[in-house]
Design a protein around this nucleic acid. Sequence first.
DNA 1: CTAAAACCTGACGTTGACGTCAGAGGCAAG
DNA 2: CTTGCCTCTGACGTCAACGTCAGGTTTTAG
Lengths: 122, 122
Amino acid sequence: MRIGEVAAKAGVSVRALRYYEEQGLLTAERSASGQRTYPDGAVDRVVLVQQLYAAGLSSRRILELLPCVYTGYATPQTLALLAAERDRIDAQITGLAATRDRLDAVIAAATASVTDACLPGR
Amino acid sequence: MRIGEVAAKAGVSVRALRYYEEQGLLTAERSASGQRTYPDGAVDRVVLVQQLYAAGLSSRRILELLPCVYTGYATPQTLALLAAERDRIDAQITGLAATRDRLDAVIAAATASVTDACLPGR
DNA sequence: CTAAAACCTGACGTTGACGTCAGAGGCAAG
DNA sequence: CTTGCCTCTGACGTCAACGTCAGGTTTTAG
């Protein structure tokens, strides 16, 4: 697979894939003329990288954790990093849930006020 | 209250408070000599702003939504923005939960491998 | 064969929420 | 009065994950 197809299937830009390669997150074979050639698994890998980015991990951290995601093996230090990121994500979820609940309350109040405005006699 | 005290109580930097003012998110009285003077409610307001930033809202969006968070009143357009942000946060929570679960699986696998290494005969 | 589409490297641009520095003034304590 | 901390404005620096452009080569479709 060439870079455009991988990008389309993974839902990212071509530029992003070259950036991932630059960061060591994605490797590619090269054809005789120098074009990147990816195996099928590359799409899943890119999706995973995107998922970790979305969870707030940096390129460097993803680079440290990607191997053990695939192998299932980790040094104690890497294991500690994994646990730390997991806990951070958990805390982030808790905070987001609180924010969502707060917005829900605001929406409920604002909806009530709009309803009031539509029922001026009540 | 002066800016340093507000910053300390809200857990942010002095620079951040000036930036919030620049963005219209926080207003302050001025003393005769030009120093900012904040009411007590400013600390809560700053904490709320931080919470919304953490949920991925931009300054501009926060500026649009802050009034109705306090008044409970919103135009239909603002109400739609509120709902959209709420749904986005909800989706973000779902994604983060999936990522956390994936990390949990990796941690379980890696922990097992470490345990194996400690029990070479098993 | 040719034109369009896709790919390459290299490099500068973008965005948001501040950090940081410079230079100047304000304020409570001894 | 002066010492030391706090505050002011203004302006440039940062950082990450790309976007975008230039100028050139390669692949593909007709």
